[in-house]
Amino acid sequence: MDETFLDMLDRNADHAAAFDDRFDDLQHGQQPDAVTVCCSDSRVLQDHVWGNDEPGHLFSCGNIGNRVVQQTDAGQRVSGDVLYPLAHTDTDLAVVLGHTGCGAVTATYDQLTDGVSEPPGIEHCIDLLAPGLESGLEKLPDGLDHDEAVNRLVEYNVDRQVEFLRDSEDVDDRVQVVGAVYDFQDVYGGQRGEVHVINVDGETDPERLRERHPAIDSRVQRLWTY
Protein backbone atom coordinates (compact mmCIF):
# COMPACT_ATOMS: atom_id res chain seq x y z
CA MET A 1 0.00 0.00 0.00
CA ASP A 2 1.23 3.47 -0.89
CA GLU A 3 2.71 5.24 2.14
CA THR A 4 0.85 8.42 1.27
CA PHE A 5 -2.50 6.66 1.58
CA LEU A 6 -1.49 5.06 4.86
CA ASP A 7 -0.67 8.52 6.17
CA MET A 8 -4.04 9.77 4.91
CA LEU A 9 -5.82 7.04 6.86
CA ASP A 10 -3.90 7.94 10.01
CA ARG A 11 -4.95 11.56 9.59
CA ASN A 12 -8.53 10.45 9.04
CA ALA A 13 -8.46 8.58 12.33
CA ASP A 14 -7.51 11.84 14.07
CA HIS A 15 -10.30 13.60 12.17
CA ALA A 16 -12.90 11.01 13.17
CA ALA A 17 -11.89 11.24 16.81
CA ALA A 18 -12.28 15.01 16.78
CA PHE A 19 -15.49 15.13 14.72
CA ASP A 20 -17.40 12.17 16.13
CA ASP A 21 -20.03 14.27 17.92
CA ARG A 22 -20.25 17.07 15.34
CA PHE A 23 -22.74 15.17 13.15
CA ASP A 24 -25.44 14.74 15.79
CA ASP A 25 -27.82 17.27 14.19
CA LEU A 26 -26.88 16.56 10.58
CA GLN A 27 -27.45 12.86 10.10
CA HIS A 28 -30.67 13.24 8.13
CA GLY A 29 -30.30 16.54 6.33
CA GLN A 30 -28.38 19.75 5.78
CA GLN A 31 -29.02 23.47 5.49
CA PRO A 32 -25.61 24.99 4.68
CA ASP A 33 -25.16 28.73 5.08
CA ALA A 34 -23.26 29.11 1.81
CA VAL A 35 -22.22 27.22 -1.29
CA THR A 36 -18.62 27.83 -2.34
CA VAL A 37 -17.33 27.12 -5.83
CA CYS A 38 -13.55 26.74 -5.66
CA CYS A 39 -10.91 25.68 -8.11
CA SER A 40 -9.69 22.10 -7.75
CA ASP A 41 -6.06 22.77 -6.88
CA SER A 42 -3.89 21.15 -4.23
CA ARG A 43 -2.79 24.60 -3.06
CA VAL A 44 -6.36 25.72 -2.33
CA LEU A 45 -7.70 23.97 0.79
CA GLN A 46 -11.33 24.66 0.11
CA ASP A 47 -12.83 24.64 3.61
CA HIS A 48 -9.61 25.56 5.39
CA VAL A 49 -9.48 28.80 3.38
CA TRP A 50 -12.48 29.94 5.43
CA GLY A 51 -11.26 28.42 8.69
CA ASN A 52 -14.18 26.03 8.51
CA ASP A 53 -14.25 22.86 10.61
CA GLU A 54 -18.01 22.79 11.12
CA PRO A 55 -19.93 20.09 9.21
CA GLY A 56 -23.08 21.48 7.63
CA HIS A 57 -21.81 25.06 7.42
CA LEU A 58 -20.41 25.20 3.88
CA PHE A 59 -21.42 23.26 0.77
CA SER A 60 -18.08 23.09 -1.03
CA CYS A 61 -17.89 22.44 -4.77
CA GLY A 62 -14.63 22.09 -6.64
CA ASN A 63 -13.62 21.85 -10.28
CA ILE A 64 -10.82 23.21 -12.44
CA GLY A 65 -11.55 26.84 -13.21
CA ASN A 66 -14.15 27.26 -10.41
CA ARG A 67 -16.91 26.93 -12.98
CA VAL A 68 -20.63 27.21 -12.27
CA VAL A 69 -21.42 26.17 -15.85
CA GLN A 70 -22.44 22.69 -16.99
CA GLN A 71 -23.18 21.57 -20.55
CA THR A 72 -26.56 19.84 -20.79
CA ASP A 73 -28.85 18.69 -23.59
CA ALA A 74 -30.68 21.99 -23.10
CA GLY A 75 -27.49 24.01 -23.46
CA GLN A 76 -25.36 25.59 -20.77
CA ARG A 77 -26.95 25.61 -17.33
CA VAL A 78 -25.85 26.16 -13.74
CA SER A 79 -23.99 23.04 -12.65
CA GLY A 80 -26.09 20.69 -10.58
CA ASP A 81 -23.58 20.49 -7.74
CA VAL A 82 -23.77 24.28 -7.36
CA LEU A 83 -27.50 24.50 -7.90
CA TYR A 84 -28.48 21.74 -5.48
CA PRO A 85 -27.95 23.66 -2.21
CA LEU A 86 -29.48 26.81 -3.69
CA ALA A 87 -32.58 24.98 -4.88
CA HIS A 88 -33.11 22.42 -2.13
CA THR A 89 -31.50 23.50 1.16
CA ASP A 90 -32.47 27.20 1.44
CA THR A 91 -28.88 28.34 0.98
CA ASP A 92 -28.89 32.03 0.05
CA LEU A 93 -25.19 32.80 -0.47
CA ALA A 94 -23.00 31.61 -3.34
CA VAL A 95 -19.27 32.38 -3.35
CA VAL A 96 -17.17 31.87 -6.47
CA LEU A 97 -13.51 31.65 -5.46
CA GLY A 98 -10.76 31.81 -8.06
CA HIS A 99 -7.08 31.82 -7.22
CA THR A 100 -3.87 33.35 -8.47
CA GLY A 101 -1.89 31.25 -10.91
CA CYS A 102 -4.94 29.19 -11.88
CA GLY A 103 -3.93 26.30 -14.14
CA ALA A 104 -7.32 26.11 -15.85
CA VAL A 105 -7.29 29.81 -16.73
CA THR A 106 -3.67 29.44 -17.86
CA ALA A 107 -4.56 26.49 -20.12
CA THR A 108 -7.52 28.38 -21.57
CA TYR A 109 -5.40 31.47 -22.18
CA ASP A 110 -2.69 29.38 -23.86
CA GLN A 111 -5.26 27.66 -26.05
CA LEU A 112 -6.85 30.93 -27.10
CA THR A 113 -3.53 32.61 -27.83
CA ASP A 114 -1.25 29.79 -28.97
CA GLY A 115 -3.57 26.90 -29.83
CA VAL A 116 -2.13 24.67 -27.12
CA SER A 117 -4.13 21.43 -26.92
CA GLU A 118 -5.04 19.30 -23.89
CA PRO A 119 -6.44 15.77 -23.38
CA PRO A 120 -10.21 15.53 -24.08
CA GLY A 121 -11.31 15.66 -20.45
CA ILE A 122 -9.38 18.87 -19.81
CA GLU A 123 -10.40 20.17 -23.23
CA HIS A 124 -14.05 19.86 -22.21
CA CYS A 125 -13.45 22.06 -19.17
CA ILE A 126 -11.51 24.60 -21.23
CA ASP A 127 -14.36 24.71 -23.74
CA LEU A 128 -16.67 25.80 -20.91
CA LEU A 129 -14.28 28.57 -19.83
CA ALA A 130 -13.13 29.80 -23.22
CA PRO A 131 -16.25 31.68 -24.40
CA GLY A 132 -16.21 33.84 -21.27
CA LEU A 133 -12.47 34.46 -21.28
CA GLU A 134 -12.14 35.18 -24.99
CA SER A 135 -13.70 38.63 -24.65
CA GLY A 136 -11.30 39.35 -21.80
CA LEU A 137 -8.27 38.93 -24.05
CA GLU A 138 -9.27 42.01 -26.01
CA LYS A 139 -9.52 44.07 -22.83
CA LEU A 140 -6.13 43.15 -21.34
CA PRO A 141 -3.77 46.12 -20.94
CA ASP A 142 -0.69 46.23 -23.16
CA GLY A 143 2.67 45.20 -21.82
CA LEU A 144 1.61 42.39 -19.47
CA ASP A 145 3.75 39.31 -19.16
CA HIS A 146 2.17 35.85 -19.23
CA ASP A 147 1.58 35.54 -15.47
CA GLU A 148 0.19 39.06 -15.19
CA ALA A 149 -2.26 38.36 -18.00
CA VAL A 150 -3.36 35.08 -16.40
CA ASN A 151 -4.03 36.67 -13.02
CA ARG A 152 -6.17 39.38 -14.58
CA LEU A 153 -8.09 36.71 -16.46
CA VAL A 154 -8.56 34.89 -13.15
CA GLU A 155 -10.60 37.90 -12.04
CA TYR A 156 -12.36 38.07 -15.40
CA ASN A 157 -13.32 34.40 -15.11
CA VAL A 158 -14.73 34.90 -11.60
CA ASP A 159 -16.79 37.81 -12.94
CA ARG A 160 -18.17 35.64 -15.74
CA GLN A 161 -19.16 32.87 -13.32
CA VAL A 162 -20.90 35.39 -11.04
CA GLU A 163 -22.69 36.80 -14.08
CA PHE A 164 -23.83 33.34 -15.17
CA LEU A 165 -25.29 32.59 -11.74
CA ARG A 166 -27.10 35.92 -11.56
CA ASP A 167 -28.52 35.58 -15.07
CA SER A 168 -29.78 32.03 -14.55
CA GLU A 169 -33.52 31.59 -14.18
CA ASP A 170 -32.77 28.61 -11.94
CA VAL A 171 -31.17 30.79 -9.24
CA ASP A 172 -33.57 32.73 -7.03
CA ASP A 173 -33.11 36.50 -6.80
CA ARG A 174 -32.73 36.19 -3.01
CA VAL A 175 -29.32 34.53 -3.47
CA GLN A 176 -26.38 36.87 -2.97
CA VAL A 177 -23.46 36.03 -5.26
CA VAL A 178 -19.93 37.00 -4.25
CA GLY A 179 -16.80 36.68 -6.38
CA ALA A 180 -13.36 36.53 -4.81
CA VAL A 181 -9.75 35.52 -5.44
CA TYR A 182 -7.50 33.50 -3.13
CA ASP A 183 -3.92 34.73 -3.34
CA PHE A 184 -0.99 32.48 -2.49
CA GLN A 185 1.44 34.19 -4.88
CA ASP A 186 1.63 37.57 -3.10
CA VAL A 187 0.07 39.23 -6.14
CA TYR A 188 -2.31 41.46 -4.18
CA GLY A 189 0.27 42.60 -1.63
CA GLY A 190 -1.46 41.24 1.47
CA GLN A 191 -0.70 38.02 3.28
CA ARG A 192 -0.43 34.92 1.16
CA GLY A 193 -3.62 32.96 1.72
CA GLU A 194 -5.89 36.00 1.90
CA VAL A 195 -9.19 36.15 0.05
CA HIS A 196 -9.80 39.37 -1.86
CA VAL A 197 -13.37 40.33 -2.79
CA ILE A 198 -13.73 41.51 -6.39
CA ASN A 199 -17.45 41.21 -7.13
CA VAL A 200 -20.71 41.35 -5.18
CA ASP A 201 -23.93 40.71 -7.11
CA GLY A 202 -22.31 41.92 -10.32
CA GLU A 203 -20.77 45.09 -8.93
CA THR A 204 -17.05 45.12 -9.69
CA ASP A 205 -15.99 48.71 -9.03
CA PRO A 206 -13.85 48.66 -5.85
CA GLU A 207 -14.95 52.11 -4.66
CA ARG A 208 -18.63 51.31 -5.02
CA LEU A 209 -18.12 47.93 -3.36
CA ARG A 210 -16.47 49.62 -0.36
CA GLU A 211 -19.27 52.17 -0.15
CA ARG A 212 -22.01 49.56 -0.31
CA HIS A 213 -20.29 47.00 1.91
CA PRO A 214 -18.16 48.87 4.47
CA ALA A 215 -17.75 45.73 6.58
CA ILE A 216 -15.45 44.28 3.89
CA ASP A 217 -13.69 47.53 3.03
CA SER A 218 -10.19 46.19 3.69
CA ARG A 219 -10.78 42.99 1.72
CA VAL A 220 -11.96 44.62 -1.52
CA GLN A 221 -9.18 44.69 -4.09
CA ARG A 222 -8.87 44.11 -7.81
CA LEU A 223 -5.89 43.91 -10.13
CA TRP A 224 -7.82 45.63 -12.91
CA THR A 225 -11.12 47.05 -14.08
CA TYR A 226 -12.24 46.94 -17.68
Rank of each mutant, 00 (worst) to 15 (best):
D186R: 01
N66I: 01
E123Y: 07
L129H: 07
D147W: 05
D186T: 00
S168Q: 04
G56L: 08
V105D: 05
H48I: 10
P119I: 06
D145T: 08
V116S: 09
H57V: 01
T106D: 14
D114Q: 12
V69I: 14
T89S: 12
E118L: 11
D147S: 12
D145L: 09
G98C: 07
E169D: 15
G101V: 12
C102D: 09
T108C: 14
Q76D: 15
Y182E: 09
R43Q: 13
K139S: 14
V171W: 11
H99E: 08
A180G: 01
H48C: 07
L137C: 06
G101T: 07
N157E: 11
D172H: 11
Q185V: 02
P85G: 06
F59K: 01
D142V: 00
G75Y: 02
Q76I: 01
G189P: 06
G189C: 06
D90K: 10
V96A: 08
D173S: 13
D47Q: 12
Q70I: 03
V158K: 00
V82S: 08
A104E: 10
Q46P: 02
S60A: 14
G62W: 06
V171Y: 11
Q111S: 10
G115F: 05
D159P: 00
T113W: 01
V181N: 03
D41K: 04
L86N: 07
P119E: 13
E138K: 04
E163V: 07
V95L: 15
L86T: 10
S79E: 13
G189T: 03
V82M: 10
A74K: 12
H57A: 14
G115H: 08
V96P: 05
V187F: 01
D114N: 08
N52V: 11
T100M: 07
Q46E: 13
T108E: 06
D172A: 13
H124R: 12
D114I: 00
L133A: 03
S42I: 05
L165T: 03
Q176L: 08
N157F: 03
D186L: 01
G80E: 15
D170N: 06
W50Y: 15
P55W: 07
S60M: 13
S79A: 15
L153T: 00
L93M: 11
R152E: 03
H99I: 10
L93R: 08
T113E: 13
T100Q: 13
F184I: 15
I122N: 02
A107I: 02
V82Y: 10
P141K: 04
L86E: 04
A87E: 15
G179Y: 02
G75V: 01
P141T: 06
Q76W: 06
D47K: 11
F59S: 10
E169P: 05
L133T: 04
L86G: 06
E163N: 13
V68R: 03
L144W: 10
G98Q: 05
G136T: 00
